[in-house]
């Protein structure tokens, strides 16, 4: 069979789709469970509420090696309204832990930016723990393009 260029491009693309489909079959729920367990550890068993915390991440990451993420929590950062820490977890990585930020009143704001590795398309979870013990969380899906070309 002689393939012309377009067919080759298509075939390679087809293989990529299959690869993604293959990954989807794997038990995502186990990883999500592990992440949920980590969240509970972090919050001391308290179920986080929605709101207050924002997670910024690309909808589609061009490369899973370096995905920029920013997290910020609404807070006066003084008195009782202080964010103590924020944990970032990735459901689909070999280990869910990514980073834990620790803030103080001297932080001024509860916001931080870093760059993370994502093994595949998955949910990224951020949980904030306030000084008064309340906890908030947010989840965002980041699609990771597998392989691509590019040597």
């Amino acid at each position: 069979m002689k393939l012309d260029r377009r067919q080759v491009l298509g075939l390679t693309a087809g293989a990529a789709v299959l690869a993604v489909a293959g990954v989807r079959v794997s038990p995502v729920s186990a990883a999500a469970e592990e992440t949920a367990k980590r969240v509970m550890q972090f919050t001391g068993g308290k179920k986080p509420e929605a709101g207050k915390i924002t997670l910024k991440a690309p909808e589609i990451a061009e490369n899973g090696n370096t995905v920029p993420i920013s997290v910020s929590v609404e807070s006066a950062m003084s008195g009782n309204d202080v964010v103590a820490s924020v944990i970032i977890l990735a459901e689909g990585n070999p280990n869910p832990e990514v980073a834990t930020f620790h803030f103080t009143e001297l932080s001024g704001k509860a916001s931080a930016t870093t760059r993370m590795r994502l093994a595949k398309t998955q949910n990224v979870v951020a949980v904030a723990k306030m000084k008064d013990g309340s906890v908030y969380s947010v989840t965002r899906q980041v699609k990771v393009t597998i392989g691509g070309c590019g040597g």
């Binding site: 377009r6 067919q7 491009l9 298509g10 075939l11 693309a13 087809g14 293989a15 789709v17 299959l18």
Partner: peptide
């Protein structure tokens, strides 16, 4: 699987275009 691969390939050639 082969049939699926073929289907995907055809669909994607289209998409590439």
């Amino acid at each position: 699987t082969l049939k699926w691969a073929g289907l995907f390939a055809t669909a994607t050639v289209f998409a590439a275009g």
